[in-house]
Design a protein around this nucleic acid. Structure first.
Lengths: 402, 402
DNA sequence: ATTAATATTGCAAGAGTTGAAAAAAATAAT
DNA sequence: ATTATTTTTTTCAACTCTTGCAATATTAAT
């Protein structure tokens, strides 16, 4: 149908920067005439604009380049951590419209105060977006630690916040009766995986069919991207690699099982293994992680040994991921990316046996490129994909000429 | 396009038995007129036929039911095991056209003799199909143990046969220059997973978004079905659950890693744990498995304890699968299905902790329903899906009226 | 200035879907 | 027995969207 082809052209323009109609036609398989008609509609909707001409080297009429109109479609991403609410509003090209970081002191077990903080942060971001002429707020995406389940994926079960089955979207939208756009709830590590996946695209080269992502910061999480889409699983648990068992007779984990990955690479076990349990107990686990960073860079043996042991656990997790999902790449995030040089020895130890038997079947393991931004960028990416696939949902900019 | 809607109507007729045009229109969202036109084309191609009328209770014109023409489109499935080649040819409704079981004595390391046996078996099945008037052979699907990789997924790496990177499809088709249909190579456990997935559909109820399958017989394998499709992974390794590590300091596995699931539930470790290592060494592992079955049914303590221990390993594998893939259901196959009653205690032991913390997030664990037939049926299912999605590739039955 | 090359647009034709109306086939009511 | 009613199927014209060709626009080279 027309909507399908409209989305096809829009995605092509969004993906391959400013490009001419001829290039779009070649890439999409559509005929020139169709691209002209579809591009005209996209221009009419204010999504796409011509941006000067550029000769293609030889003689002939120069191609008139099409690109997304900056600031036309904006999404708001909100990341909830234990201490702060991070907000990033950006357009489809990723240009930042608004950025904020709001500290919060949400009580354990009661989601309502945090919902109020979130609603307030969203309202401020929306106000900034509204000051821009012709800007259309397409979506609000809230990224949280913990599985997102339930019908419509609106329910968060966040152990760190003491919630069980909380319909966070309903709580937040109750504060925002005038908000016209959809509000999505997503898992933070899942969308971070998506962001890292797309960060590959900007480095050129083919996008792999499947990638896995493992991150550790305040907790251990991850995500699976298969065919460009997040695999959420039946209950939103997919990619929760923190609780895959590496030693089924290992130490008991709060999740109820034994020997989970989180018991080997999580912040508490890791700092304890490096001999920093005292600091963690008295000054908090963040302070212990900072100290661990110092000691690693100073070459402290117990610190590097702790990271090598963690690397062995990561290697075992990679083996489990390989057997089940078989991704082309496993991307490490959080402090697993920061401390990647100290992890490689342990990872290689675990994987060496398998690599010797089947060297070409193992995924490449790389540290992530996006660090702190991964989650917010990934949340924006989910909105971006929804928008590019449904361009007809963007209203015409000038109401007198629909 | 037309092809898309044609496939839509055909899939609907195939899925929901004999049904009237009105029902197809309601189920697909198409208009009555379109269904009439599309059904006419399918009837013209000989894929669909009217099968009498049936009053719908009240007054009014009775609906004329449409159904697939039996025997019109046939696929050949071939399963390769260490001792035999099993062949099953059936139409789109699953009606068996031909069945054969050919013993072989393929030498270790040389795929060519087995390729000759396969080609011969395929040629015989094709001859049977050709005797049927109007029957069209759509596809040959060869199911093998071991990962299927390479461009076009034609390369088998079967440890049991001593092959590494063998383009089995090329070897087989070289013997069959006159074969007009495509030949696919698939992993046996992957397609068995697909078959078990579709066996759920016939029992009524919604098909789940994701299911995982674990089977053990001569080896330990599995498959993942996500959104109705087999997830093969980047190298065809996905679902190779036999080599996910359950204890990263456990016993060394031939795959190069340590503590793999296969080291706990594979036939050799399992019979050894039951005290049957002598029988396995002298009479073969199959004899040991038969003896284990007798002892289980007789209530032998060391046998039941071995199964309980294997159940604990299966439970750990389920935890890994839950964290990574989060299926709605984990289906057990091979002797894991046969001996399911003896496994439950061990499975429940491993999962009890997690179930106590998050009871609604765990997959249901069930024994498979298809036993021996799963792989052949699943191979046919892959062909069936390809055919239903591309009905225009079936030629018209009467050449004088195209 | 003319020619060649390349990019975009306009237009008629064609394929396909849609919605309404008509036809077909059975049952219920008169 | 005939008529009305209901349900399913088919026919038909209108409409949408893509396609392929021809025309136009724009620049470099001759």
């Amino acid at each position: 149908m027309r909507r399908h082809n409209l989305a096809l052209v829009l995605r092509e323009i969004a993906a391959h920067g400013p490009c001419a109609r001829t290039e779009v036609a070649a890439a999409t398989g559509l005929v020139h005439a169709s691209v002209t008609a579809l591009a005209a509609e996209l221009i009419g909707r204010g999504l796409v604009a011509e941006v000067g001409s550029a000769s293609s080297g030889g003689r002939g009429r120069p191609r008139r380049l099409l690109r997304l109109v900056p600031g036309r479609v904006v999404a708001i991403a909100v990341q909830v951590t234990l201490e702060r609410v991070e907000v990033l509003a950006a357009d489809l090209a990723g240009a930042v419209v608004h950025r904020a970081s709001v500290p919060h002191h949400a009580p354990f077990g009661d989601p309502e105060p945090l919902a109020a903080v979130l609603a307030d942060a969203i309202r401020r971001a929306e106000a900034v977006v509204r000051t821009r002429p012709d800007a259309h707020l397409a979506r609000v995406v809230i990224a949280m630690a913990g599985p997102v389940t339930g019908p419509g994926r609106t329910v968060a079960a966040a152990i760190d916040f003491g919630w069980a089955r909380t319909d966070l979207r309903a709580l937040v939208t109750a504060h925002l009766p005038d908000l016209a756009c959809p509000v999505d709830l997503v898992n933070d590590a899942n969308v971070a995986a998506l962001a890292e996946y797309h960060a590959r695209a900007e480095q050129g080269g083919e996008l792999p069919y499947a990638v896995a992502y493992i991150k550790a910061d305040t907790g251990v999480g991850g995500g699976l991207v298969v065919g460009g889409r997040i695999h959420t699983g039946t209950h939103g648990l997919a990619g929760e690699v923190g609780h895959i068992p590496l030693a089924f007779d290992g130490p008991a984990c709060p999740c109820g099982a034994r020997g989970c990955l989180a018991m080997y690479v999580g912040p508490e076990p890791l700092t304890a293994a490096a001999g920093l349990a005292d600091i963690a107990a008295h000054e908090g686990v963040d302070a212990a992680l900072t100290e661990l960073d110092h000691r690693l860079r100073a070459g402290d043996p117990s610190a590097t040994q702790a990271l090598t042991a963690a690397g062995r656990a990561v290697g075992a997790a990679v083996l489990a991921i390989t057997g089940l999902v078989d991704p082309a790449e496993v991307i490490l995030g959080g402090y697993l990316a920061t401390w990647y040089p100290w992890l490689t020895e342990g990872i290689d130890t675990t994987l060496s046996g398998r690599r010797a038997v089947a060297p070409h079947l193992e995924p490449t393991i790389t540290p992530g490129r996006l660090s702190e931004e991964a989650t917010l960028r990934g949340a924006l990416q989910t909105s971006r994909e929804a928008t590019l696939n449904t361009p007809t949902q963007i209203p015409h900019p000038n109401p007198q000429n629909p």
